[in-house]
Design a protein around this nucleic acid. Sequence first.
DNA 1: CTTAGTGCAAAACATTTGCATCGGT
DNA 2: ACCGATGCAAATGTTTTGCACTAAG
Lengths: 146, 146
Amino acid sequence: MANAETFSQARDMFEIYLEQNGHRKTPERFAILQEIYDYSGHFDVDQLYSQMKEGEFRVSKATLYNTLELLLDCNLVRKHQFDNKNAQYEKSFRVAQHDHVIIADTGEVLEFCDPRIQQIKATLEELFDIEVLHHSLNIYAKKRTK
Amino acid sequence: MANAETFSQARDMFEIYLEQNGHRKTPERFAILQEIYDYSGHFDVDQLYSQMKEGEFRVSKATLYNTLELLLDCNLVRKHQFDNKNAQYEKSFRVAQHDHVIIADTGEVLEFCDPRIQQIKATLEELFDIEVLHHSLNIYAKKRTK
DNA sequence: CTTAGTGCAAAACATTTGCATCGGT
DNA sequence: ACCGATGCAAATGTTTTGCACTAAG
């Protein structure tokens, strides 16, 4: 199973990250990682919380926020801030870097990948003498009525 | 004065917008528009509120939020959601469309404009059969240590 | 044993809403 | 006069924080 293997590798990376940064390897942290890697697509903290409440491993929201912070830090999760208030997250290991098209009416989110973004980043690095860490590109659009 | 003239034109546009949409032309609305057009750069609601409290025209935050909504709707103001919680705004009339580089350590915001964004948007319109309304591109970077 | 991590509830925060009043039209 | 807009304060909803308790190392 590709999913299970991806999770297994992500868990290894998380473990190494926790060790190297002097964080404890609590069962909550791995349960959260697993929940995230079992899921495909975007989710917010509330969804994740509800989902885990149903399941066998119950964690508090405080722990979710805490753990997501760690997962962001070691790049196993990405965080998105679309127009609405609450942040969206998604797993990022073995998932191609991509950007988002948000359909205005429905809130539907499409993904795309365009190499020109990389070119823009390279140009900016030279222009401003900076090192790009990451970026966020959201295109807001509506479906075309034929 | 270029600034005064820009404001004057923006005010005309706002007035027309208000008329055409059956909104009242209250002094608060024009005072807010003026405050925004007198200022250069990004601001959040709190800054705008404090600034106007000092000045001669005091308005409530409810009115600020309400009016910003109208100004967004008629494209006299743009709204940005950077990584932090509170939204940032800036005037948009007679200001070239641009994107942002956020310097991680300092929070400093640089502006840039790259034509490849337009190309990407055109590609997406064709690819997904959509009509792009607007976009948001934020590059997060750190200064290069020479 | 030590102390970071947890759960819970309270706090903090930006934004929204309800309602009485004010003032454009 | 009518009813949309305002100011204020209370409500909302997400994220953060404080604290006593638990458990990883």
